[in-house]
Design a protein around this nucleic acid. Sequence first.
DNA 1: CAACTCATTTGAACAGTGGTCAAATAATAT
DNA 2: ATATTATTTGACCACTGTTCAAATGAGTTG
Lengths: 189, 189
Amino acid sequence: MSSHNSVQRDLTKDMIMDAARDLFIEKGYEHVSMRQIAKELGYSHGAIYYHFTNKAELFFALVVEHFGMLEQKLLQLEQTPLESKEKLEAILLGYIEFGLTHQSHYEIMFLIKDEEVRDFINQSPYKTYEIFAQTVHRLCGGKLSIQEIWSVFLSLHGFVTHYLRHVIKFDDVSDLAKAHVKFLLKNIS
Amino acid sequence: MSSHNSVQRDLTKDMIMDAARDLFIEKGYEHVSMRQIAKELGYSHGAIYYHFTNKAELFFALVVEHFGMLEQKLLQLEQTPLESKEKLEAILLGYIEFGLTHQSHYEIMFLIKDEEVRDFINQSPYKTYEIFAQTVHRLCGGKLSIQEIWSVFLSLHGFVTHYLRHVIKFDDVSDLAKAHVKFLLKNIS
DNA sequence: CAACTCATTTGAACAGTGGTCAAATAATAT
DNA sequence: ATATTATTTGACCACTGTTCAAATGAGTTG
């Protein structure tokens, strides 16, 4: 090759993921083609297949990345210096914010039905839910049963899922989100 | 044409919808092609485009159909001879049951992100939600605000959406669904 | 320097997609 | 019998994910 800068001419997984991430976030899984990603990088589409066996596998690499981000966000929220009750609220709100800030990823993490992709993902959401549940359980000091935490989770999930469809930003619904969280926590505190 | 039975040789919207419905339910929107539908009917794919301008429009016709089913179910539940509180529970549970009994339809009604399709759909879910909200509002006698009803709806939606992914039948999670509904109604009554 | 190795990249090829449209067909009206 | 009209066909377009023989080029060895 001669048309590329000599500094770093070899394609890497990271380079591909960087290009793909933006496109997937902007357009969603189905509407990004391997050729588009390759073009963005200045390589031919075939080159990507040397580094990732699949479009699905490439996508999955990004999903794993974002599950990590979500887990980090949850743990970080727990460390915040707040009253237990406010902290709990912050965590629930934080979950919604994450979902609506990383819409495509959330969609992929929790909503993708596509068989190819789902094969890769399967277990990841559970791990993240575990962290969510444990954190919540810790913060409400036994005021919520496992059952109830699960209901809270599903209810947050419903909020995110719904507004995901409408390509709305978190800021546009932050008040609604706060009200939703307050509704869910009405029983406790 | 000569290869078709003489009884009814002309392609109709209904015939196309009948063929498409099964395929969409079985495989999902993205994995059904116009050529597959046409093949099922014994026509060329071009013929479908005479009756529907789009794959999306064809799909939308089915969506409208299914929203009608859901509305009917909600109204029917309200007519059931039960105490107001039990009736409310029955409606919330009924919503979940509908979602998990007509999984593909629910997915189409509320989860499809595809832009073309969404353009058609946009307003339909709102109409159905209106019916849902009004019914709930009527039954709880002002004990729930509009805001809270919306939260309840989103929370039910979250339940359905989650278990949809796992291709689970309503019976398998009816206990969980009941607990979820009870959790949501804990604030009132 | 030349020869060989081998990771990497290319781009043609394949089977499929949604959509378009001139042309063929068949039924109906005049 | 002719003209009109509704319907259907299938070639065509630009696109998709994926495969793979061939080209490339950098690094190692003799």
